[in-house]
């Protein structure tokens, strides 16, 4: 089966700073992959490279068997690859409704916007109450809810979710993972970048472990928690990278 996303020997970074080295990774349609690792190992850089936000200095990025290396991010989005970036991922100067309109106008067309808005507000009644508010004035959890509403109404083929739980209360994190599970059940493939190991492993089929910008281990999530924890905290795993 052709992977929906494939990174072949990707190296990437920011100007003179290299963050990823020769990384190989693939996500099959409908599969959920957890990308784990300590702070600063290159998880976010990998997520950015996977959705065109940064262009690899070496290697290539393939979506559905098509080489998308160096292609602008909007083409990734149109190919069904959605990216929920870490931190604030809403337009702070637009209202809640305008944030949703912006997404739905592109994905649903002019006539589909109204129905999509109704669907989003019925799924997230809190957002309906915040409709005219500037998104920048929402709390962190509400902003996450808004970005999830954009994704849930028009389920992408692959969602790259970067540290969705960062800075949020446990109850909100649970809600977000509940939504992700629902997305998954609808057939969306997931690449979850996370530091909350238990949440990620419970949702995903496979885990990929990064260290110093390279993949040091990958395998099924079943019973992998202890091993993953040990690998994150023990640098001398001694196993060869998988590609």
């Amino acid at each position: 089966m052709t992977p929906i996303l494939e990174l072949r020997n990707v190296s990437a970074g920011y100007g003179p700073f290299h963050a990823l080295f020769d990384v190989c990774l693939s996500v099959q349609p409908g599969e959920a992959v957890a990308l784990l690792g300590a702070n600063g190992v290159g998880k976010t850089t990998l997520a950015r490279a996977a959705t065109g936000l940064i262009v690899p200095t070496e290697g290539s990025v393939w979506v559905d068997g098509v080489d998308m290396t160096g292609v602008a991010p909007f083409r990734f989005a149109r190919a069904g690859v959605a990216h929920a970036p870490e931190g604030r991922s809403v337009f702070a100067t637009l209202t809640v409704e305008e944030n949703l309109r912006l997404s739905f106008r592109q994905s649903k067309g002019r006539r589909g916007v109204g129905a999509a808005l109704d669907q989003a507000f019925s799924q997230f009644p809190l957002l309906a109450r915040r409709r005219p508010m500037l998104a920048g004035n929402l709390s962190g959890g509400e902003q996450r809810m808004l970005s999830m509403a954009r994704v849930l109404v028009e389920a992408p083929r692959l969602l790259v979710a970067d540290e969705l739980s960062l800075g949020l209360a446990p109850i909100i994190v649970d809600e977000i993972y509940h939504d992700l599970a629902r997305l998954r059940s609808e057939g969306t493939a997931l690449l979850i970048v996370e530091q909350r190991i238990s949440h990620a492993l419970a949702l995903c089929d496979r885990v990929v472990l990064l260290e110093h910008g390279t993949v040091i281990w990958e395998g099924p999530t079943d019973g992998a928690e202890a091993r993953v924890v040990a690998k994150i905290f023990d640098h001398s795993a001694g196993e060869e990278p998988p590609c």
């Binding site: 149109r78 991922s89 912006l102 592109q106 994905s107 954009r150």
Partner: peptide, 21 residues
């Protein structure tokens, strides 16, 4: 709406499938 979004973050606009250029 797109023009205002591009001013705030062209990259995030692109993540919505909109050609910021």
């Amino acid at each position: 709406l797109q023009m205002r979004a591009v001013v705030e973050s062209p990259r995030m606009t692109e993540l919505n499938g909109i050609q910021a250029d």
